[in-house]
């Protein structure tokens, strides 16, 4: 369970996160939804202490990651997480299997001789085959995201953080990623925190959605609850997204 209490992060005198509190239960897919630049990525980066907030508590299974400044102790808590970055953040100098198995050396005691086998297994889990020896720059955007997901789950984390998992992907690749997020949650019982401005994604995969706006959660609810929200900003955001979606689809038909 992840418990966030009174989290505040300030950038240039602006409260990007303003006294935020939320509890994310084990096994759920919790989505943080909101417009771009609103602090969604800051929120998940704070959870693994890639960013240090000004105040608040982030308690992960009883351990507050903000309590210590010792890198070794932070690292112990980070081990429980897998992180899918917006652009994948794969290492260009390594090939696919080296990327997937990269964290095993630091996060596990698994023998080096097993790395390739584990990399193959995880790649298969995300629907990729026979690409172990390919270089990262030979992959398409969707494949990169899937390899990055394989890397994020390689050490069998308890939680996965997804930062804009479908941004920049074509509809087919987006669909694959959406299904994979659901599969990861169902098959591996991983707790997922997804950050997105994609309303369709949020409504499709989430157990609960938190609508982030001006540094605060305006509403935390089930997808159905969010759809029927009476809060002006939430309604506007969802309606605008649907109008954009319909416009794009009708433009495509023309």
């Amino acid at each position: 369970m992840i418990e966030i209490r009174n989290l505040t992060k300030i950038y240039d005198s602006r409260n990007v996160l303003d006294d935020i509190s939320v509890v994310i239960k084990n096994g759920e897919i919790f989505t943080i939804m909101g417009p771009s630049g609103i602090g969604k990525s800051t929120f998940i980066k704070s959870i693994v202490r890639l960013i240090t907030p000004e105040s608040g508590k982030i308690i992960i299974d009883g351990d507050d990651i903000l309590k210590t400044n010792k890198e070794f102790e932070i690292q112990k808590i980070r081990k429980r997480f897998g992180y899918l970055f917006q652009e994948g953040a794969l290492f260009d100098s390594l090939n696919v299997w080296e990327n997937v198995s990269f964290g095993l050396k630091y996060l596990t005691d698994i023998a080096q001789s097993d790395y390739i086998r584990i990399a193959k297994e995880k790649l298969q889990l995300v629907g990729l085959k026979d690409i172990e020896y390919k270089k990262v720059n030979e992959l398409s955007g969707g494949m990169k995201k899937r390899v990055a997901l394989a890397r994020a789950i390689a050490h069998n984390p308890k939680y996965i953080l997804y930062d804009e998992p479908t941004t920049g992907l074509d509809p087919i690749s987006s669909e694959i990623i959406i299904n994979l997020i659901k599969e990861m949650s169902e098959k591996l019982n991983i707790t997922s925190i997804v950050v997105t401005h994609d309303v369709k994604l949020a409504l499709t995969i989430s157990t609960r959605i938190g609508m982030l706006f001006n540094g605060r959660f305006l509403d935390i609810n089930t997808p159905e609850g969010i759809k029927e929200s009476k809060i002006k900003e939430v309604k506007e955001f969802i309606e605008t997204s649907f109008i954009e979606d319909v416009t794009v689809q009708s433009d495509k038909r023309k």
Partner: peptide, 11 residues
């Protein structure tokens, strides 16, 4: 490209 952040998350 966030690869430095990725290093932290990979231990």
């Amino acid at each position: 490209t966030e690869q430095i952040d990725a290093l932290y998350t990979l231990g």
